[in-house]
């Protein structure tokens, strides 16, 4: 399982930030060609991100590039360069409908064929940033096998709703829709950025809510948000021990050829096993999540 607790935004036209992006330990690094790049610098940012991705090694992070939306006329130019630089994932902004994803996928597939890249090897994620996109979240999440996740982009969304960012009430519906749509499609759900970098308490309060809701992680705009978020997502020792005991009981039952496992006199239901596996994977203990 690939962890996506943190997706760090890196402006695509800033060589200093691009150079250092790998040192902070973010699960995913998202190089941005969209909002953080001035319209007059789109070409320069494309050259810079292309050059960085074909030269620098950011492993083990997942490499994501946010392109401009296709209707802007810039998105296809972004894809022409970036798909050839072989990022793991292309992030599509302002996704309103499943067709937006399908249109982007067509372009990616064409470029993969032209460049001799295995078709289907470029992943995608869709950022939902408007009221229509939220209502279409379920269809968007199932629109392509390339999708590894969907994300909420809150700034445009609250503008669309004619409200502003506050205590999270304004995002409750969108978050609920997006996390449910993602999980129904078997992919990840990524929450929006928390812009007040100096307010760690507020950041953690928001992160706690989205973790409880089922989100896989959150976009971050500053490296200092990474460690607190990873700590928050780290399972406690007590939870790890409990999950280990559950998996041990399952392995015992399997070894005995019994279809029923129990722990401390209680039968272990399938969802309990699924949760225990997920928790061990989240703790980086994949090998202990095996049933055999």
């Amino acid at each position: 399982m690939r962890l996506r607790r943190t997706m760090m935004f890196v402006p695509g036209n800033n060589p200093g930030m691009i150079k250092d992006a790998g040192i902070y330990g973010a699960d995913c690094i998202m190089f941005d060609l969209e909002d953080s790049v001035a319209i007059t610098e789109k070409d320069a940012a494309r050259f810079l991100v292309y050059s960085a991705l074909t030269t620098l090694d950011y492993s083990p992070a997942e490499i994501v590039v946010r392109i401009n939306d296709l209707s802007s006329g810039l998105g296809v130019q972004d894809l022409e360069a970036i798909v050839r630089a072989r990022p793991h994932v292309i992030r599509l902004p302002k996704t309103e409908t499943a067709q937006d994803v399908i249109d982007c996928e067509k372009e990616i597939e064409r470029i993969e064929k032209e460049a001799g890249i295995p078709v289907g090897s470029t992943g995608m994620m869709a950022a939902i940033e408007g009221a229509e996109g939220v209502l279409n979240a379920a269809e968007i999440a199932k629109s392509s096998k390339r999708l590894i996740g969907i994300a909420l982009g809150a700034e445009d969304y609250v503008t669309d709703l004619k409200t502003t960012r506050s205590d999270g009430t304004e995002l409750a519906f969108a978050r609920g829709m997006i996390v449910n749509a993602a999980r129904a499609a078997g992919i990840d759900a990524l929450d929006t950025v928390y812009s007040d970098v100096s307010n760690e308490e507020g950041f953690l309060a928001e992160a706690t809510i989205i973790k409880k809701m089922g989100f896989s992680g959150k976009s971050v705009i500053n490296p200092r948000q990474i460690d607190p978020l990873h700590r928050l997502f780290k399972p406690s020792d007590k939870d790890i021990e409990k999950a280990r005991a559950i998996m041990e009981a399952i392995r015992d039952a399997n070894a005995r050829g019994s279809g029923v496992a129990s722990l401390n006199g209680k039968m272990i239901d399938k969802p309990v096993v699924t949760r225990a596996k997920y928790l061990l994977e989240l703790a980086g203990l994949e090998e202990e999540a095996e049933e055999e």
Binding site: P15, I18, F47, L48, T55, L56
Partner: peptide, 17 residues
């Protein structure tokens, strides 16, 4: 203090412009 990849990118961008 640019890395080679940044030197390449800036040179190419300037030349195409």
């Amino acid at each position: 203090g640019a890395l080679d990849c940044a030197v390449r990118a800036r040179t190419a961008a300037a030349a195409f412009r």
